[in-house]
Amino acid sequence: MADVNRGNRPLSPHLQVYRLPLTAITSIMNRATGHAMVAGFVLIAFWLLGAAAGGGLWDCANALTRSWFGWIVLVGSCWALWYHFLAGIRHFFFDAGRGLEIETARKSSIAIIAGSVILTLLSLIIYYI
């Protein structure tokens, strides 16, 4: 039997109706950055393997690492590493029962995003100096 009082509401909630809070987005991003760092680790491992093997493998690994694609992967991995690190610190506080208020959690989410971008830029500046 159909619910006559339902009106125009959807049958089940979905992302087009409900907006995820910033804390949920940063929590999802924490998991995603954990997986995304693997790309950078694989590229660095390939580069180190090429350095150890020498010859043609070194030329291939060095060219890949120094290409625009390698630069994007390494910068993205650097950002993911800083983001994951800062989010991990926040989760230590959450585990201790601190910072769980809605406004405090929202501010810490903003701090994680801003901090990861700033630390990535500082890492790039230090690298290029």
Rank of each mutant, 00 (worst) to 15 (best):
M29N: 02
I25E: 03
W47G: 04
A39H: 05
G7Q: 08
G88F: 12
R31S: 10
G56R: 01
N30R: 09
P13I: 03
F94I: 10
V75R: 07
L64G: 01
N8M: 13
R66Y: 11
V38S: 09
A52S: 12
W47S: 09
I28P: 00
L74N: 06
C78A: 09
G54N: 04
W79M: 02
N5L: 14
H14L: 04
S12L: 14
H14Y: 15
W79C: 03
R31D: 06
A36F: 15
A24Y: 11
A51K: 15
G40C: 01
R98Y: 15
I89T: 08
L57G: 05
F69P: 08
G55A: 07
F85E: 04
S12R: 10
W79P: 04
L15E: 13
G54P: 02
I44A: 12
Y18N: 08
F69Y: 13
H84W: 10
D95F: 14
S12P: 01
L15A: 14
I44C: 05
H91D: 15
L86F: 07
V75A: 09
Y83C: 00
H35V: 12
A87Y: 02
R19K: 11
A80R: 05
L57A: 09
H91Y: 13
G54S: 00
A80T: 04
N62R: 08
L48A: 08
G7S: 12
A87V: 04
L49V: 11
V75W: 01
L81E: 02
L22G: 01
G56S: 06
G97H: 07
G55C: 06
F93N: 10
F93K: 14
A39I: 03
T33D: 03
H84K: 03
L15C: 10
D59I: 14
G97K: 04
W71I: 11
R98K: 13
A45Q: 02
G7K: 10
I72A: 14
W47L: 15
R6M: 08
D95N: 14
W68L: 08
H14F: 15
W58E: 12
L15D: 15
L20G: 03
M29V: 12
A36I: 14
I44K: 10
V4Q: 09
T26A: 00
Y83G: 01
F41N: 08
Y83P: 05
L20P: 02
Q16L: 14
C78Q: 09
P10Y: 07
G88D: 10
P21S: 00
S27K: 07
V17Y: 15
W47V: 09
R66D: 15
L20K: 09
L74G: 01
T26I: 05
G97C: 02
S12E: 09
I44P: 00
V73T: 07
A24T: 13
